[in-house]
Design a protein around this nucleic acid. Structure first.
Lengths: 197, 197
DNA sequence: TCGAAGGTACAACGAGCGTTGCAGTTAGTA
DNA sequence: TACTAACTGCAACGCTCGTTGTACCTTCGA
């Protein structure tokens, strides 16, 4: 019934799959089961719709991830095991997650054609908010003497790279739970102990 | 004088900046100072040109990076310092490097619209070849007792993520040498020692 | 000097797309 | 029931683009 939400959801599907240039308003309208004219009643133009879609997607995924950070890292008893559990929850696809990360790739590619302010806003509500929350938790763990952290934001970046960058994002990137577990386990191990000596 | 090379180079510039869908044959022709008809004399169609462009770019950058791996990691005396020097060389932009990595982002985004065989071939001549070379060197360092490496390919992936993923690839990603040095230093430190205890 | 290979300029086609206007239809509300 | 706000289907516009055909030109070796 809420056409606006349907358009945002259809836009997510189409833009994530086809990108901005390829993704057409008519296809989005069909996907959302909405007249293409309705899209223009809710959004100024294609660029405005795109901005709304990436903002909406970033907002929803960030909220889910913030909740995971809070749930798994509020109280840590067994450091490595808890980090692994957290990493698995982090990486295990929430619904929409595949579409969201495909959309992130589109934004990365399209960055030169998106107004800087829109990118900044997107960064702020999405990746940066999440990274800040993670940095907070890592800093807290450092205060408890469990970690050695000089720059919490950098540590958060390194952590998320190690546990989630470990797949070749090409193709659907559908990993089995076993693959996720293994990637996260080795990632957490590298984060904690490194490869030295 | 070699029109084919000019087309490949112009295609790199345009596809890296505008992506596949936005990048137009006429613009590429203008960029390469070539008639658009000439493009069709050398390449079957737009898709074929794109495949040739990404393959060419991957090949040239991979060659440069293989050389860097060989030059900096053939003989390692001071582990951490040498890894940092290597990382800085690795990250310091070769000419074309900015365009190349923009193109990589385009490929990542466009993956669903590129035939799988083309992606596989690209992976093979580009990222995989480089990662294999790096894995070889890391394994050698492990044999010398300088590193603790169970899975060399994974270690190579982690290393490259830590030293080169450390920037927000949005915008031109023009980092100053100081920023590169700092990102690489902290990345190498994380790779060697981790954040544990 | 001739001839061939490759390059160019130009025009044309057909298709897809963003966007708008308009007239008609639905659904919910006073 | 009557009104209003939102939605739809449809047609149309102007524009861009991939692709091809064709006739002409340049260069260079035989």
């Amino acid at each position: 019934m809420d056409k606006r939400q349907a358009v945002l959801s259809g836009g997510l599907t189409v833009f994530a799959r086809d990108g901005y240039a390829r993704g057409s308003i008519d296809v989005i309208a069909a996907e959302a089961q909405v007249s293409s004219r309705t899209i223009y009643n809710h959004f100024q133009d294609k660029a405005g719709l795109f901005r709304a879609v990436i903002q909406d997607s970033a907002q929803r995924v960030a909220a889910a991830q913030l909740e995971i950070v809070d749930r798994y890292l509020r109280k840590v008893t067994e450091l490595e095991a808890d980090l692994i559990e957290f990493g698995i929850a982090w990486r295990t696809p929430i619904p929409d997650y595949a579409e969201h990360s495909a959309l992130v790739r589109q934004v990365n590619a399209e960055a030169g054609h998106i107004p800087q302010e829109a990118i900044d806003a997107w960064q702020e509500t999405g990746p940066l908010a999440v990274r800040r929350a993670l940095a907070d938790r890592l800093a807290a763990l450092a205060d408890e003497g469990l970690l050695r952290v000089e720059d919490p934001m950098r540590a958060a970046l390194h952590f998320s790279l190690l546990i989630s960058g470990a797949n070749p994002s090409y193709l659907g990137a559908r990993m089995t739970p076993e693959e996720i577990t293994e990637a996260v386990t080795t990632g957490v191990h590298a984060f904690l102990h490194g490869y030295g000596r």
